[in-house]
Write a protein that binds this DNA or RNA. Structure first.
Lengths: 305, 305
DNA sequence: CTAGAGCGTTGCAAAAAACGCAACACTTCC
DNA sequence: GGAAGTGTTGCGTTTTTTGCAACGCTCTAG
């Protein structure tokens, strides 16, 4: 869409923080870019950027405009997607922001299913911590979000949420392995494998531990799920996981999972949704639909509360 | 905003139904306009208009796009309004669609109040029947709506609604004038002054009459409020009115108003609102705020249900 | 305190895009 | 069967945008 090139220019200038740098990535001259910016500011009647010695920065008016621009650009994507959809061809792009807890197993298989059904649809998956999800959505960097225990739900439109009580994971010969459920103080007696504090699982555990006056001792701590997963597979230490990831990582390991008493650690929730007040492109909407349908069927595997 | 001139072009072509006619009102050559259209269709990959012998007509893709365009254009107005608002100047435009019942008295005085406070704000008021209100909003022809008994509430975001029991209006020496409330069958015995069937008042009356097996005899019927108002002032026939218009039209007339038994004719409601999912420009939002505040204070003058 | 690097901005000529004019092919209606 | 309407296209002209170079400015390092 050539005619709203100015929008992309503004977006890039805001991102780069300097006209010259933006001009470089946009492959045009700084002077040309500057003139387009001046023209827009002239039409608008007010400046959009404040000029600093080291570059430019959005002022309040600019922030309002940029929000409009981002909304507008992504809504145009939706329009193109809908138009493509009615000519029979299912094309489009789905951009996903997801918690590190959810990058494995379930989500990849869902993407694969969808992609197999509609090869014309492309995907982008970005790992985001629970506190950063809303930013990815509001900046229109991602269309849909899968979050475990989101930090804020402002501007978040929930489409579905899935109950996820936290489980302990251990070797089959671990002292706790035979129990129906474990208390948190029992776990606290063992050295633990814990995810980083930015994770939702860790957040729930820390919160509960501090409430109960317990001290969780992380022997190994990581923010890389790949690492946690493989480490768990060895079963060296007591670890934690949510049901959606169980029976996936551990098939060959001979590992056992035991739920933590919900009175000790409250259940977490996976939230599926998008930016509030936004109409999603067809592909993204259908993908959410598929995923939530699958999640509903997962509910059957979960014990009742 | 020069850069989204193409949008205005598309809008005008759709409205005119022909490139040549649109070109005329847009003051450019048909060839130039046509080329811009072809360029857009080329960028989009599909045709937006189907070509007829007598002109062009939007196809489905075009309708999706046009909806986007209208939303986009009016959202840009909101942005400009918000930006203007931050520099302290209260400028802007408020476009109102309102039922014929509501064109007099209350609304003009509200507009006058607001306009007196903020002379930089301009107004446009369009009379629309209850069944056409949603169209005016969804086409972004109007920002806000004041409707008596709207026909549909799809895509309508209600900000406030005001209870409005229907009253009989008559001369002070009319046989019914002394009653506390009148039954519909009592009214049906007299020749009536009725508004057009497109009106909300008439809709409520007709519906109730048919339910009660009554036959309302309109001696005089009009869709012009100005006419009804002046005719009522003379008090020749039994007429109907809603409370928001009482004590305004009839101060000098020596007329009397008596509510109709709510068991016979259900109360009507004035709906104040705008298109669902839309953020209004500052001026429009403040105006709605002022009006609803005023309406709340009107409630004190109404007898309890 | 000064030299240099980085920034936004502007004058001017070249390149690109848009435009108006005229003509063509086509359908509909009288 | 012609006239009037439609969308479309080739071509020369006009308008707009761009790139280049230079200017004035602020901040930083030596």
């Amino acid at each position: 869409m050539r005619h709203l090139l100015p929008y992309k220019y503004i977006e890039e200038i805001a991102r780069a923080g300097s006209i010259r740098k933006a001009a470089e990535t946009l492959a045009i001259t700084p002077s040309a870019l500057n003139r387009r910016l001046l023209a827009i500011e002239d039409e608008l009647g007010v400046a959009i950027f404040e000029r600093l010695a080291v570059g430019v920065r959005l002022n309040t008016a600019g922030e309002i405009l940029l929000e409009h621009i981002r909304h507008q650009l992504s809504d145009l994507e939706r329009v193109k997607s809908q138009i493509a959809d009615l000519s029979g061809q299912r094309r489009g792009h789905v951009s996903i922001a997801c918690s590190p807890e959810l990058t494995g197993g379930f989500l990849p298989s869902q993407v694969q299913d969808y992609q197999h059904q509609f090869p014309g649809v492309t995907f982008k998956i970005n790992r985001r911590f629970r506190k950063d999800i809303d930013l990815a959505l509001s900046e229109h960097y991602s269309d849909v979000a899968f979050v475990f225990e989101p930090a804020k739900l402002t501007d978040f439109q929930t489409v579905y949420n899935l109950r996820q009580p936290i489980h302990c994971v251990m070797k089959h010969n671990h002292p706790l392995a035979q129990k129906k459920s474990v208390r948190l103080y029992e776990c606290a007696e063992f050295p633990l494998l814990l995810p980083d504090v930015s994770w939702g699982i860790r957040h729930l555990l820390d919160q509960s531990a501090s409430r109960l006056g317990l001290n969780l001792r992380p022997v190994v701590q990581s923010d890389a799920r790949e690492f946690l997963r493989d480490y768990k597979r060895e079963g060296g230490h007591l670890a934690f996981e949510i049901p959606i990831n169980l029976n996936r990582d551990f098939e060959p390991g001979g590992l056992v999972s035991v739920p933590i008493d919900p009175l000790d650690v409250p259940e977490g929730f996976i939230f599926v949704g998008h930016l509030k007040g936004r109409t999603l492109p067809v592909a993204a909407a259908r993908f959410i639909e598929q995923v939530t349908t699958k999640m509903v069927s997962l509910l059957d595997d979960l014990p009742d509360q």
